[in-house]
Every structure is written in structure tokens, then in C-alpha cells.
Design a protein around this nucleic acid. Structure first.
Length: 278
DNA sequence: ACCTAAACCTGGGCGC
DNA sequence: TGCGCCCAGGTTTAGG
């Protein structure tokens, strides 16, 4: 679920409540999701203090006082929630970091695609982050990589893949997933199937601005909670109430009154207005 | 370079 | 009510 605005919102919550806490114990009932293993994570985190939280694209990093880093990817249904230990267990809770002062960091994940990965050094992290393309704008990302309009045009015009698939390619651009790709293309009035290469200068500029616009809207509404996303306090976001395309199959386009279509593109559900998006 | 399908998992919704 | 099928916001891998 979580794309750039959601992961950023979680990051802000973690920064507020997690920094300075000491890790006392680690538990899991889903060892596959802890890499390289529960025991290694225990050995390298218990006794350490959380120093800093960062984000790059959809990946969160928890920096520890011993120099190790926990990288967390939430994939489709992952959640990181901070609770007092007396709070009843959360749904789909699969890993718990017991912290000082009776706090817990709970990793919940219905589909179990997400992971927590122990990294031994910043160098290891840099290697991982080097795989990500630049980000649309700086919203507290740890990366230096900023997607300027010039860079965006270069990336778009050098690929003949459908523009929507390109937007979601994390190696090309970091942080955009299915929801924000659909919303940005709707806002820019560009057909998701349009070959990237064939876009005009003007279209690329409008799309670039639309991406920034919808991501900032996502941040403003604390993320989109269609089903599973919640922030670090377990609260839903509200951007889903403002979608213009995503999930609106069969409903009226709010711009032209046409009917929103749903197609499959690169194996992913894609929502758009045939009339508006040429 | 690009395209597709399948895999990792669980649960909700739909049609029959 | 129940069963089977399809769907789900991500990413990786295998094969063409």
C-alpha cells in the first residue's frame, strides 16, 4: 500500500516517538520476514538505542546507536505501529520490538510480503539505495537524488515503455506506486498507455508538476488508506476521499462526466478517463 | 530493451 | 450458506 507519501507519514511518526528509545527484546512469528534471521537481528539490535529514522523512496531506515541499520519495506500491507505494551495486540502482528518505558514497535503485515533487514553499515545501505531512481521532490528523503524537470524529461524521453509503467519503475524514479501514478496521469490528462518517448515537452512538464501535486496532496491528507495503510500511531489517512481516478471504475469523471475505465497495464489495475486522458 | 507470467501470502468480495 | 474464483497499493525472478 504504502507509497512515498504514506512511508513519509510513517517516518514522521516514528521520528517523533521512536528516537531515543532502547531496544530490549525482539519477537516474531514470521521469521522469513526478518533478514538475515531473527537471531542475527536480536544480537545486533538488543541493547542499542534508536538514533534516527530516514526514508528513501518506499524504504524506511532505522539507525541504531551501534552503527547498524534496520531497513524496512512495507510492500503492500505492511504497517509499523508504536504502542504501549498494555494495548491489545494489533491485527496481523508478526514482529515486535520491545522498547524502553513500556513501548513497543509492532510490525504488522497481512500478506507477509514486507521485510525488516539488518544492514551492518552505511556502506551496505548506500549500496541498496543506489538502486533507486531520483525522487520527485525533497520531502525529507535521505537521498541526495532529486528529480529535476530536466532529469525527468531525460528519463521519459529515453524509454518507449508505457508512461505509467515508467512512473512506477523504482529504478527510474523513486517512490511512486499504482495510486499516485494513476492520479498524476489523470491530473495531467495523459493516457497511461502513452509510450513515454512520444510525449511532448509540454506534456512532460505538466506530468512532472502533476506528480509533485498529487504526492503533496497525499502528504497533506496523511496518506491514502484504501484498506491497509495506517500511520505510526495506527491512524488512517484520508487521501482516498479525494481520488479522481484510482478505484473509481464505472463512476463519473469529476472533470468531464465520462465514465472512469479500468484496464490492466503491465499486470496492474489502471484507472483513467478515456475522454480526458488522450 | 521490453514484455509476460508467476511467485511471495492472506483475506474480501463476487457470482453461482 | 458455501464454494470457487478473482482481486489487491510491491518487488523479484525466470523466460521469451
Amino acid at each position: 500500500m504504502p507509497e512515498l507519501p504514506e512511508v513519509e507519514t510513517i517516518k514522521l511518526g516514528l521520528q517523533k516517538f521512536l528516537v531515543g528509545k532502547k531496544i530490549l527484546e525482539v519477537w516474531t512469528d514470521s521469521p522469513k520476514q526478518l533478514q538475515p534471521s531473527l537471531s542475527t537481528i536480536k544480537e545486533n539490535t538488543v541493547g542499542s538505542t534508536i538514533k534516527k529514522i530516514d526514508r528513501r523512496a518506499k524504504l524506511l531506515q532505522i539507525y541504531l546507536s551501534n552503527g547498524k541499520i534496520l531497513a524496512v519495506h512495507l510492500k503492500l500491507t505492511g504497517r509499523l505501529i508504536i504502542r504501549k505494551n498494555e494495548v491489545p495486540q494489533d491485527e496481523w502482528q508478526h514482529a515486535i520490538f520491545k522498547l524502553s518505558d513500556g513501548w513497543e514497535l509492532r510490525f504488522c503485515d497481512l500478506r507477509k510480503f514486507g521485510y525488516l533487514k539488518l544492514l551492518n553499515s552505511e556502506k551496505e545501505l548506500d549500496k541498496l539505495l543506489a538502486e533507486f531512481g531520483p525522487e520527485p521532490f525533497v520531502a525529507g528523503s535521505s537521498g541526495q537524488a532529486l528529480l529535476t524537470l530536466e532529469l525527468f524529461k531525460k528519463i521519459v524521453s529515453s524509454s518507449k515503455i508505457a508512461i505509467k509503467q515508467l512512473l512506477m519503475d523504482q529504478k527510474k524514479i523513486g517512490g511512486i506506486g499504482n495510486i499516485y501514478a494513476c492520479e498524476a496521469l489523470f491530473s495531467a490528462k495523459i493516457n497511461p498507455k502513452r509510450p513515454a518517448k512520444k510525449m511532448t515537452d509540454e506534456e512532460m512538464k505538466i506530468l512532472y508538476e502533476s506528480i509533485e501535486k498529487v504526492l503533496k496532496l497525499g502528504l497533506k491528507y496523511h496518506g491514502a488508506s484504501d484498506q491497509y495503510y495506517v500511520d505510526a500511531q495506527g491512524q488512517k489517512g484520508s487521501y482516498q476521499n479525494h481520488f479522481l481516478a484510482y478505484g473509481r471504475k464505472g463512476e463519473k469523471c469529476r472533470v468531464c462526466g465520462g465514465i472512469i475505465q479500468k484496464i490492466k497495464l503491465g499486470g496492474r489495475g489502471t484507472y483513467f478517463c478515456k475522454r480526458c486522458q488522450k
